[in-house]
Every structure is written in structure tokens, then in C-alpha cells.
């Protein structure tokens, strides 16, 4: 990755965008298949997009009410806090989970005729965004039920989740290469995602009274990428944005580097899934 020139980055992005236009019909078909297929064999269908976070919330509420777990002071009712946090976490980890297996998943089609793998990645990004829109709509209804007052700043929620999206996509792209050639590394990272969730203020607040978790949360980039969108959506006043801006800048650089690396390396691993 030494000596990456701006012109190299521009040329990779030009190629990605041109391929997306060239294969736009394939992209549409893949999105249609994915959206309709993901719960095709399930009776409840897309309702699972809401049931999944509700089940997680239910577990945490039981632990909370049993006094087994003190999440620290939250600005909004704890169930509402959990709902937004878990939805954001699912949004982030969804990119890692789906993009992470995209090369292997595309194998069946790639063997027929080669097509740019970025079509499969774009499909995964679109599916995750659509799923998140469904979950978010449900979140807003529940937040209204809890009496959360949305304000103009709540609209900033949408742009504020872009860094979280970019970070999830970067992890997904990077580790999708390992999923093919070094499955153990991919598996370790995949298994660590749950631990990472506990090290991020998702089920507890940033004000948690635990020295260890507090220190981890302070240096964990996901703290800023999840807490700022959550605070913006739920109308929290006086939000400190410095950490968010620094983290977002770093994430943007990571994203550009990962896309460059992925683009130069992906063809080398594709043949390994077809051997």
C-alpha cells in the first residue's frame, strides 16, 4: 500500500462507479432477490427485522429489572435507549456480516461468467440500508410512545450514521478477503463482534460507573459513531462532537485505503473459492 497516489484512488472509484452503471440491471435483480429471499421461507417474513432487536431488548430488560446489570444513567427511558442502540449496532454489524461473506456468496454466479464483485458489495449495502429503514421506522414509533421529543437536530441523525456505515463496510470488505483465504482470522473477528458490542456503550450508557468499561469506551471509536447518532435522534441537548469528528475523519481514511486494497486484491482470492 506504499505510495498510493490520488490518481490511483480516483481511477479505482471511476472504475467502481462505471461498473455499477454498466451492471445496474444485475444490481436491481440481485437487490430484488435478496430482499424477497431473506425471509422467503419464514412465515413472519420482514417482521423479523423488528422481532430481532425486540428479543435482544427483552433479554437486557430482564437482566436490568433483576438488578443483575446497571447500565448507568440514560437520557431517555432505558427500553427506548436499548432499542435505538441495538438498532444502530445491528446496522453496523450487518455490513460486516453480509459483505464479509459476499465473495463466497458470489461464487456461484462468478463461475458462470465474471462480473465486477462491487455489484455484490453494493447489493449488500443497499439491503442493509433498506433493513435499517424498516427498523428505524419502528424505532421512531416506539420513541414517540415513550414521549421522546424530536427536534430539528434529529434530522442530523441520517448524515451522522454515514461514518458508522463506512466503518462497517470497511470491516466487511477487508475481512471478506480473509473469509476466503484465511477463514480462521475471519472467524476470530466474527466471534469478537459480540465482545466488541459489550465494550461499546450499546446496552449501557456512556456514563456507566465502571472504570474499566468507561476507559475502554473512551478509546473505542464505536462509542462516538453510535452515541452521537443516538443522541441526535433522541433530542439530547449539548452534544460534544469533537470525538465524533476525529473518529469520522479516521474512518474516512480507513475506508478509502480499504477500498483501494480490496480492489487490487479481490481477483487474487476469487479463484480460491472456485478451486
Amino acid at each position: 500500500m506504499n505510495n498510493i497516489k490520488i490518481s490511483d484512488i480516483i481511477s479505482v472509484w471511476q472504475s467502481i462507479i462505471s461498473n455499477i452503471f454498466k451492471y445496474s440491471e444485475l444490481l436491481k435483480q440481485l437487490v430484488y432477490i435478496s430482499l424477497t429471499q431473506q425471509f422467503k421461507k419464514s412465515i413472519l417474513g420482514n417482521a423479523w427485522l423488528v422481532i430481532d432487536p425486540l428479543m435482544s431488548i427483552f433479554i437486557w430488560l430482564i437482566l436490568h429489572s433483576a438488578g443483575m446489570f446497571n447500565p448507568g444513567e440514560t437520557n431517555i427511558p432505558y427500553p427506548a435507549y436499548l432499542l435505538v442502540s441495538i438498532s444502530l449496532w445491528t446496522f453496523f454489524v450487518g455490513f460486516f456480516n453480509t459483505i464479509g461473506i459476499s465473495i463466497t456468496e458470489a461464487g456461484r454466479m462468478l463461475i458462470e461468467v465474471s462480473f465486477p464483485i462491487e455489484i455484490k458489495v453494493t447489493e449488500k449495502i443497499i439491503i442493509n440500508i433498506v433493513n435499517f429503514i424498516i427498523t428505524l421506522t419502528f424505532c421512531i414509533v416506539v420513541l414517540l410512545f415513550f414521549g421522546i421529543n424530536f427536534n430539528v437536530k434529529s434530522l442530523l441523525f441520517i448524515p451522522s450514521i454515514i461514518p458508522l456505515l463506512l466503518f462497517g463496510v470497511s470491516l466487511g470488505l477487508f475481512f471478506s478477503l480473509f473469509e476466503v483465504v484465511f477463514f480462521d482470522i475471519y472467524l476470530v473477528v466474527k466471534r469478537s463482534m459480540r465482545l466488541l458490542m459489550y465494550l461499546t456503550p450499546i446496552v449501557y450508557s456512556t456514563n456507566i460507573k465502571s472504570g474499566f468499561l468507561g476507559t475502554i469506551a473512551k478509546y473505542n471509536p464505536l462509542t462516538y459513531l453510535t452515541s452521537i447518532p443516538r443522541d441526535l435522534l433522541t433530542g439530547v441537548e449539548n452534544i460534544e462532537l469533537t470525538g465524533f469528528w476525529i473518529t469520522s475523519g479516521i474512518v474516512l481514511i480507513i475506508f478509502i485505503l480499504v477500498v483501494q486494497f480490496y480492489y487490487l486484491s479481490v481477483n487474487k482470492v476469487i479463484e480460491k473459492i472456485l478451486d
Partner: peptide
């Protein structure tokens, strides 16, 4: 070995 070579080739730009 094929996977190991694939892994090392990733970093051979």
C-alpha cells in the same frame, strides 16, 4: 498451502 499463498499474495501489490 493454496490458502496461505492466497493470503501472502493479498499483500503483494
Amino acid at each position: 498451502k493454496s490458502m496461505i499463498y492466497g493470503f501472502t499474495d493479498l499483500f503483494r501489490i
